[in-house]
Simulated scan of single mutants.
Amino acid sequence: MIGRMLMIVALMFIVAVPTMAQGDYDRNSPEFRENTSQFMCLCGCGQDHFECNMEGCGLNEQFKTEILEMMNDDGYDKSEIKEHYVAMYGEVILTAPEKSGFSLTAWVTPFILLGGAGGGIIYLIRKWVRKSKQLMKPELPNGLEDETESDILHSLIDEERKKHF
């Protein structure tokens, strides 16, 4: 009976400890890295907020402190933090575009256009090459073309054979 009670208390302690520690994020936690790396630093360094190491960037430290407060004090998750900063700065702050709506169209359209233009250029080049081959080759009646080429080839081979043998 006492063993069963100790087991229940131990089980409750095991279950309760991770939930209590859930709000204690620091700058080395993977959750903090995920949250800060989804935003571009606004100091002009071109890095995300987690990686920004530009000297004199006061924006980065303030931003990291705000995110830690949101995670620990307010209990915000990744999507809520993202919504907060997108509402404040717009989609410009994101390191990767949204996968919906105009953002997706704006990122995909140039690649589609480049692929179509490349395919069109290849088609035109092949068409021009075919046309130039037809212009360079004299038109002979059907069947005669193969015989004429074969006769010329055999006569050249015979001439060379006579010269050397």
Rank of each mutant, 00 (worst) to 15 (best):
G3R: 00
G3I: 09
L6T: 13
M7C: 11
Q22V: 12
D26W: 03
S29W: 03
F32Y: 03
E34T: 14
S37G: 01
Q38W: 05
M40G: 00
C41D: 00
C43M: 04
G44Q: 08
G46E: 12
E51K: 07
M54T: 14
G58A: 07
E61S: 13
Q62S: 11
F63K: 01
T65V: 07
I67T: 01
L68Q: 04
M70L: 13
D73F: 01
D73M: 05
I81V: 06
K82W: 01
K82P: 00
H84N: 09
Y85G: 05
A87W: 00
G90F: 03
G90P: 02
G90L: 07
G90S: 11
G90V: 03
E91T: 06
V92N: 06
V92F: 06
L94I: 04
T95L: 04
A96K: 11
A96V: 13
T105D: 07
T109A: 14
T109C: 12
G116V: 14
G120L: 14
Y123S: 03
L124G: 11
I125A: 09
R126I: 13
K127L: 08
V129D: 14
V129K: 06
K131I: 05
S132F: 09
K133T: 12
M136I: 04
L144V: 13
E149Y: 04
D151R: 13
I152G: 02
D158W: 06
R161P: 02
K162N: 07
H164P: 03
F165N: 12
